[in-house]
Design a protein around this nucleic acid. Structure first.
Length: 384
RNA sequence: CGAAUAUCGUUUACUUG
């Protein structure tokens, strides 16, 4: 049972829906699907894969539910922006835990509903350090540093996450010195603290300082290495970037993506394509990176080719993919392809995104169909 | 009915604008 749970967890993390379904079928066949513990894992797996209807079917079909079942169902909704559904369950839930409240706060915060998040935070019966951190993170995301700092000082106990969130907040708002001061004042730094401050210096183009910290930190993880790699790439220090990539003790898909980005930034598109095919795994970011690189370098044939491979492999494009591939259509004045992509955009419900919308309008306009461009343009509720 | 070294929430790196 424990092994199955772990496997389901992995399916959720990697969004392997088909594998997860397989396990589900197997559980049904062996009658284990009534197990509370395993059902909770099924909810989580479907939730993480974005299959909320399936998650809900499991949830509704359970004879017994514990707070984990409810929390996981609510989390599934919040993480995919279905805040109304989440709120409905939240309201229905009898014994909310601090996790329930925090999950809702996170959901609101990640979708820009700051007032709702704050309202819940004020209302919750008790708060632990994670809820405080979640609220600090909410303010940080809004760039409201003073209010984040107020909470940081008000909270009964601060842990490393609290400090790290503040450090990142200052760095993101361009207050590198304040971030560094906080870092230095921090009592017990963890690897994320070090990575955060290194990233802060990288974001401000101070690679020398970043490197000093990188060398000084007690232990480095794959994030530390990747941060440096991508920092050098962004500065155009291609050789340095390669050196970090070669020397890193282990690589994950993000490190590979960063290296891909280094080639692209260098203008070595063919090398980038080669690397893309050689990577041990590809994530959606990898596909987006290579498609966008091809499109912006005028390798339109290649862009369409890779985009089609992506669809064939059953990988769901997102808004980033569409912005890039629509740009390729625009350059080619390829109306047929553009229309087809526009259809897919609508089918996937991404036609509400302002960047996708503007890419669609430009595509139709460049293809000589100004009337359609105008039609789409007029359908945009608020324009920038 | 109860128990449990079982499952949930917060902070850092990669792609478009």
């Amino acid at each position: 049972i424990h092994a199955i749970a772990k496997e389901l967890r992995r399916c959720g993390k990697t969004k392997s829906l088909s594998k997860g379904k397989c396990i589900h079928d197997h559980l049904v066949a062996t009658g284990l699907h009534n197990d509370l513990f395993l059902s909770n894992h099924l909810i989580e797996m479907y939730g993480k894969c974005g299959k909320l209807e399936f998650a809900r079917m499991v949830f509704d079909g359970m004879e017994k539910r514990d707070s984990f079942s409810w929390n996981l169902m609510i989390l599934g909704y919040t993480q995919h922006g279905h805040l109304k559904e989440a709120l409905r369950l939240f309201t229905e839930m009898a014994e909310k835990t601090v996790v329930t409240w925090t999950a809702m706060i996170m959901g609101y915060s990640k979708h820009g509903q700051m007032n709702e998040a704050l309202g819940l935070f004020k209302q919750m019966p008790e708060r632990d350090v994670v809820s405080w951190n979640a609220m600090i993170g909410a303010y940080v995301r809004q760039g409201r540093l003073q209010e984040a700092l107020d909470l940081f000082e008000q909270m009964p106990h601060r842990d490393a996450c609290s400090w790290n969130a503040m450090i990142c907040g200052y760095a993101q708002q361009g207050h590198l010195q304040e971030a560094f001061e906080l870092f230095k004042r921090m009592p017990t730094k963890d690897v994320i603290s070090w990575n955060s401050i290194i990233s802060a210096f990288v974001q401000h183009g101070q690679l020398d300082q970043a490197l000093q910290l990188f060398e000084k930190m007690p232990q480095r993880d794959v994030v530390s290495w990747t941060t440096m790699l991508s920092g050098y790439a962004q500065q155009g220090c291609f050789e340095k970037a390669c050196e970090f990539f070669r020397n890193m003790p282990q690589r994950n898909v993000v490190s590979w993506n960063a290296m891909l980005g280094a080639y692209v930034q260098q203008g070595c598109i063919d090398e980038a394509i080669k690397l893309f095919y050689e990577m041990p795994q590809r994530s959606l970011v990898s596909w987006n990176a290579i498609i966008s690189a091809c499109a912006s370098q005028g390798k339109l044939k290649e862009a369409f080719n890779i985009y089609n491979q992506m669809l064939q492999q059953g990988i769901m494009p997102d808004r980033v993919t569409f912005v890039s591939i629509l740009d390729a259509c625009t350059q080619n004045a390829d109306l047929a392809a553009g229309k087809q992509i526009h259809n897919l955009v609508i089918r996937l419900g991404l036609d509400g995104d302002q960047y996708v919308q503007s890419a669609v309008v430009v595509m139709y306009a460049k293809c000589g169909t100004l009337d359609i461009a105008r039609l789409v343009f007029d359908s945009i509720p608020q324009k920038d």
